[in-house]
């Protein structure tokens, strides 16, 4: 069996993409809510939906907080769920540092609203079976989280 199948890189059974607007705190979380509704409709187990919802929300809010705009795509494969978030933005200079719990470059405004705990990426890592982040400073970030369904 090719290794890529286990990571959800083949052709998905279903794919749905959504736009995420940077800086739009009012809409922040809407895309994640829609993806959660979709996963419910499909009949995924509550436990898997919970994990996916956390991954989606944290990734979506990172686009809202740090990037200009982005797209969030959910893919259902026979054996896994893939959440892909690509954004145009400042990028992450040191991904390893950004992954550390508590590290945050959130502004005072964001912190006063309860964002910027530096727990977003760690939350995604804990709830996904696989997390890959690629980032180019000055261009943007692409995140891929895979959740195994079986």
């Amino acid at each position: 069996m090719p290794a890529c199948d286990a990571e959800g890189t083949g052709k998905p059974l279903l794919r749905q993409g959504y736009a995420v607007q940077g800086g739009d705190f009012l809409a922040g979380g809407t895309v994640s809510t829609r993806i959660k509704d979709l996963l419910k409709e499909i009949g995924l187990s509550p436990a898997l939906i919970r994990r996916a919802a956390i991954c989606c929300y944290e990734a979506e809010m990172n686009v809202v907080m740090y990037a200009r705009q982005g797209t969030m795509t959910v893919e259902i494969h026979p054996r896994e769920l893939v959440i892909r978030v690509e954004d145009e933005g400042p990028g992450i200079p040191d991904v390893e540092l950004a992954m550390q719990e508590g590290y945050s470059t959130a502004t005072d405004f964001m912190r006063s609203r309860g964002f910027g705990a530096g727990m977003g990426l760690p939350n995604i890592r804990r709830n996904a079976d696989l997390l890959e982040i690629e980032s180019v400073v000055g261009r943007g970030t692409s995140l891929r989280a895979v959740i195994r369904l079986v």
């Binding site: 979380g29 509550p46 919970r50 956390i54 809010m61 609203r113 964002f115 705990a117 977003g120």
Partner: peptide, 24 residues
């Protein structure tokens, strides 16, 4: 009051006490 903390540690069906009042 930290949203990521609530995302990580709250459970379905719980009542959430917070001082955050914004739409998120």
């Amino acid at each position: 009051d930290l949203l990521s903390d609530v995302m990580a540690h709250s459970h379905a069906g719980e009542i959430w006490i917070t001082i955050q009042t914004h739409p998120n």
